[in-house]
Structure formats: C-alpha cells, structure tokens
Amino acid sequence: MRNKSVATLAGMSVLALYSSMAVGSKYNFPEPQSVIAQDIYDQHIVLLWICLAIFIGVFGVMFYSVLKHRKSLGYKAANFHHSTTVEVIWTVIPCLILVAMAWPATKTIIAMKDTSSPDMTIKATGYQWMWGYDYLQGEGEGISFFSKLSTPRAQLQNREPKGENYLLEVDNNLVVPVGKKVRIILTANDVIHAWWVPALGIKQDAIPGFIRDTWFTADNPGIYRGQCAELCGKDHGYMPIVVEVLDEAAYAKWAAEKLVGTSSAVNLAAVSTEMAASGADEAVEAAEENSDNN
C-alpha cells in the first residue's frame, strides 16, 4: 500500500502547485485588469490555501490511520464510537472558517452590485449568434454596431491553420476608455446569453425581455477577450466578446470617427420594446422552423 501514500503526495504537490501559480498562468484566472477581478483573484487564492490546509489536516489524520492502524500490522481495533466534545469542536470550527470566507466575499458582492453613477453606459444585446452594442450615455453616445466572430470557417473546419486568436476574435471590438466606470446594460433578443470578460471580472446573463446591468473599470489599455457563457444554441461556442481598452485620447478619436458613420442616436426605450415584442414572435417562428430543418 506504499503506492497510496505516493499517490497522496503526488496529489498534494499538484494541489500546492495549483495554488501557488504565478499571476496569469494557464493554471489560474487570467491576470486581473480591474479592481473586482483583482478581488476575485485574491479571494480565490486565499480559499485555495484554506481548503488545502483543511485537506492536509483531514487526510493527514486519515492516511496516518490508513498506514498505521491496519490489521496486517497486527493493530487491534479500539471500540470508541462517540465523543460529544470533539463533535462540537469539528462543527464549530468549520463555521468559523466559513465566516472568514464569507466576509470579504460579502464586501465584493456589494461593490459588484453598485452600478450607480457610471461614466458611460453601453447596452449589449445578445443575438443568436452575435452581440449588438449601443453606446447610450457618455462619450461616444449614439454609436451602435454588431460584433461577430471573425475567425474564417475554413479554420473551424480544419482546412486552414488556426490563427493566434482562434475563436476569440470579432469583426468589431467593443471599445472603451481606460479608467472610466463603464456600465453595461444587458438584454437578449431570442434566448439567454451571458456576457463574460474574465480579465475584467464580469459575467452577466442577458435575459430576453428583461434588462440586467453590471459594470467595470479597466485598469490598463489592452485587448481583453471573453465568450458567451450561457448555452444559446448551435453557435454558442462562436460568439466571443472582445473589449478593446484605449487611453482617453485614443478613445476620443475612435468615438469621433465612429460617430460619423452612425446616422442617428438610438432611443433605448423604443428600440428595446420593439425588440422584445418581436423577440416573442421570432421565438415562435424559430421554434417552428427548427422542427423542420436538420
């Protein structure tokens, strides 16, 4: 039974490795690019250590017992089967550990939920299968475009070598300025989608007929990639999200250029009502269509 302890050791070293991974490695969350993402990253590391400690505690005892208290070593079984004291202790201690875990999480949740006074507001609408963006408020107000996967089909079907950003590239990036509180308003046109950018620490479902919101403030300029994170049908795997964070000047320039191309500002209420109402009909039609094709 030596191999069991070897297996244990191996398992534990893997776990230890796992938790001490450098920022941004492929064993961990991507490098955080916002305060919230940083909080999440840190809490995850702390939790890993706590869990590892409990794990070593529990299985240290268990495997000590497995190695020593075996019949083959002639060990005679004791006959105790009850102890109120230890049972109370091992009920209370986990409770305390949990409180320690919940405390920072609670603070982060409250911060995450606070979408008030944004510098700019963008509406993201999920479609089967692309995203629509409308800049509703702040610099760039009135910009409106769709954003779809730009990886060529030939790459998906292995007829061409896959590019560096395979499946994580779009025709129109969502462009935002650095250091500004950006509020994202979410809805969907047909089924539920989810808007997720790991490096910014946000993920929010887009529910047809309802409006949800979330926010982020990007710390550094750069390009951050994410994907739709709610099964939304056939091409769920093919609706990435690319957020391009520019410094203020570059953003202003981008917005000005983009606005020239956009004819008129979008009225949220009008568009969304029309959208959701037609969404219902479309869902019905789509259902009918779906049963026919294939």
């Binding site: 208290h69 075996r70 060990y75 230890v86 949990l98 919940a102």
Partner: peptide
C-alpha cells in the same frame, strides 16, 4: 451564498466521523 456555504458544516461532520471511525481501527483494504 451563506446558506450554500453552510452545507459544508454537516458534510464536514460526516467526513470527520468517517475519519474517526478509521482512527485506531484494525483496517484491511
């Protein structure tokens, strides 16, 4: 979140009880 985390407590009790059952037993595998 709180109610979910709480489930760790009774589940932990089970794990600890199994460990204590093995402790100073006369085990075969």
């Amino acid at each position: 979140m709180y109610s979910t985390m709480l489930i760790a407590v009774p589940t932990g009790v089970k794990v600890f009880n199994w460990t204590a059952t093995m402790w100073r037993g006369s085990m075969t595998f």
